[in-house]
Simulated assay, not measured.
Amino acid sequence: MGQDGAGIELETSLGYLMKEVSSALRTAMEAVLRPLGMSVTHYSCLELLAQRPGLSNSELARGTFVTRQAMNVLLQALEADGLVTRSEQPASGRALPTQLTPAGRAQLATASAAVRGVEDRMKSGLAPAEQVALRTMLSTCAASLRAT
C-alpha cells in the first residue's frame, strides 16, 4: 500500500495482475511473430480481416488498439507487400474496405499457429472448466468497464 495508506496493494490488485499478464502475453507473442516479420498489431490486423472482411481503416484501428494514423501506415505496408487489397472506391462514405489476399491468408495461417501455441502455453496450468470460467470473468470485466 502507498505511504499514506490510500494506494493499491499490487499483490492483490486485479488491474495490476491483468496488466502483468497482458505484458507477458504481448512479449511472448512478439517473440514468435518477430521471426515471421510481423508485430502483434500486424498479426491482429490480418486476423481481424480474416474474420471480418471489408473492415475500414478506423474499424481495424479500434480492433487492434492503435490510432487511425498508425493503422493507415500499417495498411500501406501490408498493401505494398501484397498481403491486403483496398478498394479504390469506398463502399459508402469515405471508408475504403480492406481484404486479405491469398498471400495474406498464407502468412496469417503461419502466424495463427504460432500465436495459438503461446495461448496454449499461457493456459496450460488451467483445467478446461477454469479456462471457460476465466473467459467468462474477463468478458464480464470488460463489459462492466465499457458500460460506465
Rank of each mutant, 00 (worst) to 15 (best):
T98S: 10
N57W: 02
T27Y: 01
M71T: 15
E130R: 14
G54C: 06
L134Q: 07
T101G: 14
E119S: 05
K123L: 12
Q99I: 00
E130Y: 07
N57V: 11
L100I: 12
A28W: 02
V40I: 12
L60F: 10
A109P: 01
C141P: 00
A77G: 11
L10C: 08
L36C: 04
A114W: 02
V132P: 02
R86D: 02
Q89A: 09
V66E: 01
E59M: 09
L83W: 03
L126I: 12
L17T: 15
L74F: 03
M38N: 01
A28T: 02
S139P: 01
R34F: 00
V40H: 03
G15N: 11
L108Y: 04
L126G: 09
L83Y: 07
A103Y: 05
G7H: 06
Q76N: 10
L138W: 12
L25N: 13
T67V: 14
V32T: 07
L75G: 00
M71H: 07
Q51N: 11
Q89F: 00
L100A: 07
A61F: 02
M122E: 06
E30G: 03
R86F: 02
N57M: 08
A80T: 15
L14I: 10
A6T: 13
P97H: 05
L48N: 09
S44I: 02
L49C: 08
T67M: 03
L145M: 11
G104F: 01
S139K: 09
D81Q: 12
A106Y: 00
S92R: 12
V132S: 13
L17N: 10
A77Q: 12
R146G: 04
R94G: 13
G117Q: 12
D4I: 09
Q99S: 10
L33Q: 02
Q76C: 08
T136D: 01
R116A: 13
T67W: 01
L108A: 04
Q51I: 01
L60A: 08
V84Q: 01
A70H: 05
H42Y: 10
L83T: 07
L60D: 03
L78V: 13
